[in-house]
Simulated assay, not measured.
Amino acid sequence: MKHLFIDMPLKANTTINLERNLARRITRVLRFKQGHKFVLFNGKDGLFETTLTDIENGVATLGDCLQQQPAPQHTALYLALTKRDAFDRAVRQATEMGIDHIYPVETEFSVPDKLKTERLDTIIQEAAEQCERLTLPILHPHQPLKTALEQAEGKIFWADESVAKENTLGQWGSNPTTLNDGLLIGPEGGFSDTEKQQLRSHAKIVRVGLGQHILRVDTAVCVGIGRFFDHLQA
Rank of each mutant, 00 (worst) to 15 (best):
T219W: 04
L145K: 04
N13H: 11
A71Y: 10
I123T: 09
D193V: 13
D45F: 12
I55T: 01
I123C: 06
I214R: 15
C65I: 14
G170W: 04
L79T: 01
R89P: 00
F32T: 01
K2I: 06
K83F: 03
S201P: 06
F229G: 00
I214P: 11
T82R: 04
V163S: 05
I205M: 04
I214H: 13
T82M: 14
I214A: 10
L120P: 05
L149A: 10
L136E: 08
R84P: 07
L139R: 08
H213V: 11
K155C: 12
D64V: 08
N42F: 05
A71P: 05
E188Y: 08
L77V: 11
I102G: 10
A220G: 00
Q233W: 04
Q68F: 02
K116F: 09
K83T: 09
L4G: 05
C222Q: 15
Y78E: 03
D54L: 09
F229N: 02
T82F: 04
D160N: 09
A94H: 00
F228H: 01
A60G: 12
T27F: 10
G211E: 12
D85M: 13
Q69W: 02
F191V: 03
L77H: 04
H142C: 14
L10M: 10
E118M: 03
K196L: 11
I16H: 02
H3E: 08
Q143S: 12
D88V: 06
K116S: 06
D45V: 07
D85C: 13
P104K: 05
E108I: 06
Q73V: 10
S192H: 04
T61A: 13
K44R: 14
L4K: 02
L10S: 07
E49L: 12
S192R: 00
P104T: 04
L134I: 06
L77E: 02
L79N: 02
R84S: 11
A94R: 06
F38G: 07
E108R: 14
G186P: 08
S174W: 02
K37L: 15
R133L: 09
I6C: 10
S201G: 14
V163F: 03
Q171H: 13
A90Y: 04
P187M: 03
Q73I: 08
F157D: 00
D7I: 07
M1L: 13
K196W: 05
E161H: 14
Q69I: 06
H213N: 13
V29D: 09
L136W: 08
N180L: 11
K155D: 05
L66Y: 00
D7C: 03
V111W: 00
V163P: 08
H231E: 00
F228W: 09
P141Q: 13
V221T: 12
Q212W: 01
A76P: 09
P141C: 05
V206I: 15
A71Q: 15
E106A: 08
R92E: 15
I124M: 02
V105A: 07
V206A: 14
K116Y: 07
R84D: 13
L10G: 01
H142G: 09
